[in-house]
Nucleic acid binder design. Structure first.
Lengths: 208, 208
DNA sequence: GTATGTTTCAAACAGTTGTTTAGATTTTGG
DNA sequence: CCAAAATCTAAACAACTGTTTGAAACATAC
């Protein structure tokens, strides 16, 4: 009968949105377990520690994301002629939007977490990402390199980080930005429309 | 004689770099007062509370910044012909670089703090900025509007936020990025060079 | 049924947090 | 030089943190 989510999932859901909204240190396990309506000790039982819970939240996102990105990247990798920059950037759209379909505010939660982790001390998270998800990043940049073959690799490095900043920052604040936009311009805007507005900006900057 | 900095300044210096590196909640008053080599209670004596200390750190930065920005904006406001987008964006360079001249890693500290504050819950910080520094933001956007008069205001809104994300994200991570760039490409890069690389990217995106 | 392994629970643990207090010390102004 | 104000200091405060514990409740298999 029990159509109640598993304790593990309830914890992950609560932790995800709380971490995204308040940050890791600012969110206590008691706040999480209260919202999830589970016992305090169950976090340590199921995940071992708070640190591991944080990683578990990331893993759930990243698995889904790279899986979707793989589907988008494959056909481009297969085609013989070089892709356009716009084409490569567009591989991000579906994977990003999908996060919000499965869970409310999923995309902005994901980007908020990435932004927070990125800002974390000592680049600890950057190293984790590099170790666990480097192959996917590499596949993406390889296609970008095919699209702009005569761009020096150090220039590529910088513009890639510029784009990363724009995406993370914009989507992390997308909830608030969408609200402001609707209030100020009386036009309802979706996350998808925002992404379609963002990509030309990125492409133009990248080709600057 | 005492050429020792005032207690207030010592606290502000320590708090600034610790907040930037670790975040607000992750930095305890004891860590701050230890680094500053002052008594624990002096934070509450001079600033009232931890929250007020955070605001004081911001205020010190923002005062310097808008003061320098004013100097850059004034001549453009005075000139009769419309400025170019590049010209308007370039008003940010000197104010941003100046932060690193007075204090080591000043610019990246400033951007890290902005990034953290921006991600904070409920847009509490966004409201504070809006209330206290809206006039300066307005002067900047007014010039940007002069540079691109036929850009719809809702488009302007989005591209402004895109640019904001790129700048904050890039400069917040500039320490690490500069290190990586030097290690990978054997070319020493300065913060100023990074900014000069960043502006064309922004201008191209803005005009996309 | 009982026995076995898994999950939940309330309670307590030791450590850290921001803030307050009251007394000592230093600085200021007449 | 002395009183008054400002500053510094060590100690204690209550509240909150992540984690551990051992017993209770539940599920599964024989």
């Amino acid at each position: 009968m029990s159509n109640r989510q598993s304790t593990k999932d309830r914890i992950l859901d609560a932790a995800e949105s709380l971490f995204a909204d308040r940050g890791f240190a600012e969110t206590s396990l008691r706040t999480i377990t209260n919202r999830a309506d589970v016992n305090l000790a169950s976090v340590n039982y199921h995940f071992g520690s708070k640190k591991s819970l944080i990683q578990a939240v990331f893993d759930r996102f990243l698995k889904k994301f790279v899986q979707a990105l793989d589907k988008e990247l494959a056909p481009i990798e297969a085609q013989s002629e070089s892709p356009t920059v716009e084409q490569v950037l567009h591989t991000l759209v579906t994977p990003l939007l999908q996060m919000s379909q499965v869970r409310n505010k999923g995309t902005s939660n994901f980007m908020k977490l990435l932004g927070r982790a990125y800002a974390e001390s000592q680049g600890h998270m950057r190293r984790f990402m590099q170790e666990h998800y480097a192959p996917y990043l590499l596949r993406f940049t390889r296609q970008l390199h095919r699209a702009a073959p005569n761009l020096a690799s150090n220039e590529m490095f910088w513009r890639l980080h510029f784009m990363l900043g724009t995406v993370i920052f914009t989507l992390a604040g997308s909830d608030a930005l969408l609200e402001i936009a609707e209030a100020d311009f009386k036009e309802s805007v979706t996350l998808e429309q925002t992404l379609e507005r963002l990509l030309p900006f990125l492409a133009a900057g990248f080709k600057s």
